[in-house]
Design a protein around this nucleic acid. Sequence first.
DNA 1: ACCATGCTTCGGCTGAGACCGAAGCATTCC
DNA 2: GGAATGCTTCGGTCTCAGCCGAAGCATGGT
Lengths: 226, 226
Amino acid sequence: MKDGPVIANIAALLGDPARANMLSLLMDGRALTVSELAEAAGVALPTASGHLAKLESAGLLFAEKQGRHRYFRLSGHDVAEVLEALMGLAQRTGAVRVRTGPREAALREARQCYDHLAGARGVALLHGLECRGWIAGEAAPVLTPTGHRELTALGIDVDGLQTRRRPLCRVCLDWSERRSHLAGALGAALLDHIIARRWARRGSGRVISFTPAGIRDFSRVFGLNA
Amino acid sequence: MKDGPVIANIAALLGDPARANMLSLLMDGRALTVSELAEAAGVALPTASGHLAKLESAGLLFAEKQGRHRYFRLSGHDVAEVLEALMGLAQRTGAVRVRTGPREAALREARQCYDHLAGARGVALLHGLECRGWIAGEAAPVLTPTGHRELTALGIDVDGLQTRRRPLCRVCLDWSERRSHLAGALGAALLDHIIARRWARRGSGRVISFTPAGIRDFSRVFGLNA
DNA sequence: ACCATGCTTCGGCTGAGACCGAAGCATTCC
DNA sequence: GGAATGCTTCGGTCTCAGCCGAAGCATGGT
């Protein structure tokens, strides 16, 4: 039983606050750039670069170069699971206060994941768009011509979104639903749309609170019962 | 999403080789003294004492004073789960070589856990003893009068075991079987008995290799089909 | 009462690693 | 081509934590 060092090597990587901050930001499966992660972790760019290099060479992160950006994502779901287990342990041992009951439920229902919609509503949104044929493709979805036309008709500046460097469509594995929801520039624009139409408003923390009328309209426009 | 530091605090505790060594020794639920853990971790006693104090105040370990010894054990099963998850991650990321197939199967079948029997045979042993009414009690089992008589008749010096400070009966959650097996002084004595009767012999590492005849006798004496 | 054993605390040493500024590539934009 | 952006590498500082020896408590044995 000499597997102590094996554990220690990985745990030490998670044991630095800056790295842990970056990893918890990546926990939802998104890919972020070095700059974004540096800012979120509160360290300078060279420091973040060094941390990410370590995490990558240890196999915890996967790097992908896109233009002059470098996107990092978790190398697998098991990494997120370990992080969640650690958070659970922190809760049980009293290192962090227990979650307030109602807020937890609200988070599962609808929450903000970076800048797009997650939770049950987020998953429903992606599913609805797929069933309507507005977007297509499983892992790397693309906007269909129909989708382009319909979304533009709804007042979403799809052409404007496409000129930006950020990918238009991206999927993101939902923590609570265990299914994908829509991320990327379009995901962000749709959340903005939802907020702008007052179907929902931002609650405390990451919670997104839908109004009853908002749920109805949301389902009518994007839902399954088309 | 500022839960980075929360993760980091706990992970940093697991990230030191000496502490990780101690924790992996405690993974099977046994309670060990400071001296034992110090030696196993390869550090001096003061160093180990400091490590254990940290782990205890973080709620990962539970300390129990017994005479002038101080026994430490994991505070819960979730700690072991995190450690296992980390080991799994280390395997996938290639930090450690993949286990050799046949040896893995042998380990699941029967292995030595500290000084007692674990694996499928270990779980069967505890189950058999319970069904025969030789020991009783779920979490903190005790030897019944019947058990005392029968085991003594088998040549096991139960009275001698009871004079020692070590608890006679203790249960230990089996890693591979996910059920308890018997630990404590009696568990150790029974493994000695099994070896002495040549029902099995110690193989490489922690493997316990039963002979065909040994399995038959083992099942007859301790098994379910009484 | 005395010694032995097991553990903790204290003090000082040392090395690992986190951190940043400056400089150096690489890529893209104009 | 030149400027801007994003990232990496280098070099240096500095803090933090691990480590041990020695001394100090506490408990148990005789």
